[in-house]
Write a protein that binds this DNA or RNA. Structure first.
Lengths: 227, 227
DNA sequence: ACAGGCGGAATGAACATTCATTCCATCACA
DNA sequence: TGTGATGGAATGAATGTTCATTCCGCCTGT
């Protein structure tokens, strides 16, 4: 295949980039066909390696997928934190995270769908359950979304809803939209994205008397002013 | 394909019940393990029939699943229309439909997840794409959600966002929350459900001077919600 | 007695995993 | 520098398993 090239460091690390190729092939195929829908043979072909080679890098199919998930999920979370500033207002932090999810999905469609697939598999469900019921064993790498919600509730700018509901309201629409976009069902321009993210904020936003929209107040409705 | 419809008076045996059992077993298992993750043998065992019997009622596995999807999806849509009144205000109609999705998911978790699985499979994606690009071949059975959105936009009570975005904002959180609930990760009380649905409305709601709508009952017109 | 529904063993295709073999860069030695 | 030895990496045919589908003898209702 390759001529002498960069054979400098001898036989150690993955000359042909094979591990990388296997990983990418797996992500791409599983994101489309799911775990049981993508045989090892298909992965090998897509990666341009022999089937046996995969087992040189990964113990078995389960391990392969689990390892990829850990890596991809970690990178994803890392991406979200880029440019994230805890000092910013709650709304800004919220929008930053939501936009991050959005952009990650648009830029990494295969990884995004791979993560989705994983979370919706029995294994992913188990994992999520364990994460909730015993908060142990994690690096505290959790999405800072929870903290934003807590802060927002303390400031009374975010509705008093259970965490799960807030997460659903924030992330649900984004996942939905990104999937449609990836599938080629829609084309999103910048304005639509911004407006949709703002709408996610509207969903969780707790209105207070202080920040009511600066619009006309119908006098007929304001007869009672807090007796 | 066809089963002679039980030749006249067959008051006994088990003719209809078996088909039913096969269908339910398929829904339950596929909702959990996905299409490729549930072998025919597993379905047969769960249904309490021989593997061969399944082929007496369905041509092959694909047909089985497709037929079930058509049936379940139809019943689901039908459920949503129960008690639906086109004459009601936009917000009421919207909440009716959203609540319908929610309740259907809570009452029929296996069917709900089955539909999900199907829509997320390559076949489901193709189907959705066709549905969008050529609006042909359907019984006009579409979710009336689109009509609610159109009406709401005409009345300027719903944001001017692309249909896909509105759908994502409305349905995304519900699907998310129902899945969590089915997985046993959360327990939802009536108030939380109501508030979450209201939040979905907030997401798509276009504020005008005429309405401020904190969740409130008609009896008390207090616009302030703070104790 | 018999027509046809039924269960489940039979069948061949497809799958995950293994393994004997090939390949090739490096190196010892002349 | 040339030559052959060495060992890890790569491969795909081989292996045992599981799958979807078919087939056949049993059994039940009439």
């Amino acid at each position: 295949m390759n001529i002498h090239s960069i054979t400098t460091s001898s036989t150690q690390t993955d000359p042909g980039n094979k591990r990388e190729r296997i990983i990418h092939a797996t992500i791409r195929l599983i994101s489309e066909y799911g775990f049981h829908g993508t045989p090892i043979s298909m992965i090998a072909q897509e990666a341009g390696v022999g089937a046996g080679t995969i087992y040189r890098y990964f113990k078995d199919k389960d391990t392969l997928v689990l390892e990829i998930f850990t890596q991809v999920n970690g990178a994803f979370k890392q991406t979200l934190l880029h440019g994230y500033d805890e000092g910013h207002p709650v709304r800004d932090r919220f929008l930053h995270l939501c936009r991050g999810i959005f952009q990650y999905g648009m830029k990494n469609p295969y990884e995004f769908k791979f993560i989705e697939q994983f979370y919706n598999s029995p294994y992913g469900t188990t994992l999520r359950r364990e994460k909730i019921f015993c908060n142990c064993g994690d690096t505290g790498q959790d999405l800072p979304l929870e903290q934003v919600f807590a802060a927002g509730q303390a400031q009374q700018v975010i509705k008093k809803l259970p965490l799960a509901a807030l997460i659903a309201l924030a992330i649900g629409p984004i996942v939905f939209l990104v999937k449609d976009s990836i599938a080629g069902l829609i084309q999103l321009d910048e304005a639509t994205i911004n407006n949709t993210l703002a709408a996610c904020w509207d969903a969780i936003h707790q209105e207070t008397g202080a920040d009511r929209q600066p619009v006309v107040t119908p006098s007929s409705f304001t007869t009672e002013e807090k007796p």
